[in-house]
């Protein structure tokens, strides 16, 4: 019996969130008294794969094939389910990323496994197997007992720390069995803004709302994010008005995020917005309206005009970051 963790790569590299996931998988494997196997699909160099053993993966499977070079949910799910069967895995862990959620759902069906999505903490194994997952769009958590023999879970990034646990880990090939029916979908083009930090994974996020008055004023928001090393986000009215792309919209109907720091500028804090950001560890709110409801959900608040406060924050952030180097 083992725990199998599927590790995503981006152009042959693992991101920090992957090491988080492996650390998480190792902690669960220890709870269950089993070992951790990692499965990578696609083109990843052996040095990069070997890094997974630093976080507890004692076996590292690599599935390579010309047809598996880019992420394709259907065939990837088949490979993961096959590996889980070959390893006799009772628990399959993956990231709750856009593709990870789709893959987890398909793997669960293939293995007749119960699925825990958007898990935010280690499972409680004191009485069965209970995971804590987000529910009601950030307004609550649900404790879900997975009762099946084999279980699949997807874990939200930033919900577990990267913890070093060096073990002897060997990289072994895993021969994927490909099925033509899994390739009815063709990926024609992938566009990734390589110079920007991806919002769902970001540890620091600078977000702005209608208080910025128009898209032409976003320069200072981007600059602040840049200096801090943060991703940019926005509120729903802003993306609805076309000031910023929908992909930046955080909130109940946008994406839910849980960064270490969320800085909200000119966002009043409607309940739908709060739902998507309430699991941020620290929230800073800048708003000229002292009555803005967001202040009640914040750790730090500054009442002031964004056009006066943000330039001060940028200068201070420059000095702060310079002082750290």
């Amino acid at each position: 019996m083992s725990v199998l963790v599927y590790v995503e790569n981006v152009e042959g590299r693992f991101k920090k969130s992957t090491f988080e996931l492996v650390s998480y998988g190792f902690a669960v494997a220890q709870k269950l008294g089993s070992s951790l196997t990692a499965l990578s699909i696609g083109e990843v160099g052996s040095d990069e794969l070997q890094k997974l053993s630093l976080y507890g993966a004692s076996k590292i499977l690599q599935a390579k094939n010309e047809k598996l070079k880019t992420v394709n949910v259907q065939p990837y799910a088949s490979v993961i389910a096959d590996a889980a069967k070959a390893e006799g895995a009772k628990l399959v862990v993956m990231s709750a990323s856009f593709s990870g959620k789709g893959i987890a759902a398909r793997v669960a069906v293939k293995l007749n496994a119960g699925l825990g999505e958007n898990v935010v903490d280690l499972p409680d194994t004191s009485n069965g197997f209970v995971v804590k997952k987000g529910a009601y769009s950030g307004k609550a958590f649900a404790m879900v007992q997975i009762t099946s023999d084999v279980k699949v879970i997807s874990v939200v990034s930033n919900s577990y720390k990267v913890i070093e646990n060096k073990v002897d880990g060997s990289v072994q090939p895993f021969e994927p069995q490909l099925n033509d029916n899994d390739f009815r979908l063709t990926v024609k083009e992938t566009i990734r803004a390589s110079d920007k930090i991806s919002l769902p994974d970001a540890e620091l996020v600078v977000s702005a709302g209608r208080g910025m008055k128009g898209p032409e004023n976003w320069g200072m928001i981007e600059e602040l994010a840049n200096v801090l090393g943060a991703a940019t986000a926005c509120s729903k009215p802003v993306s609805d008005a076309g000031w910023r792309p929908h992909s930046e919209h955080v909130g109940q109907t946008g994406i839910a995020i849980s960064p270490n720091l969320y800085v909200a500028i000119g966002i009043s804090g409607a309940i739908q917005h709060l739902a998507g950001v309430s699991s941020s560890k620290v929230i800073v709110v800048v708003n000229k309206d002292v009555e803005a409801p967001f202040f009640k959900a914040a750790d730090y608040g500054i009442v002031g005009d964004a056009f006066e406060v943000v330039p001060v924050l940028i200068e201070a952030a420059k000095k702060f970051r310079a002082g750290q180097n």
């Binding site: 669960a108 007749n112 496994a113 119960g114 699925l115 825990g116 209970v130 804590k132 529910a135 950030g138 307004k139 609550a140 958590f141 649900a142 404790m143 879900v144 007992q145 997975i146 009762t147 099946s148 309430s278 699991s279 929230i283 709110v285 202040f295 009640k296 959900a297 914040a298 750790d299 730090y300 608040g301 500054i302 009442v303 002031g304 006066e308 406060v309």
Partner: peptide
């Protein structure tokens, strides 16, 4: 294959620290 055993609400923040502009 699974069932919800209970719900929980996010911990509310202690209190906001206001910083003068």
């Amino acid at each position: 294959l699974s069932k919800i055993v209970s719900y929980d609400k996010p911990v509310s923040r202690s209190s906001v620290k206001m910083i003068a502009q």
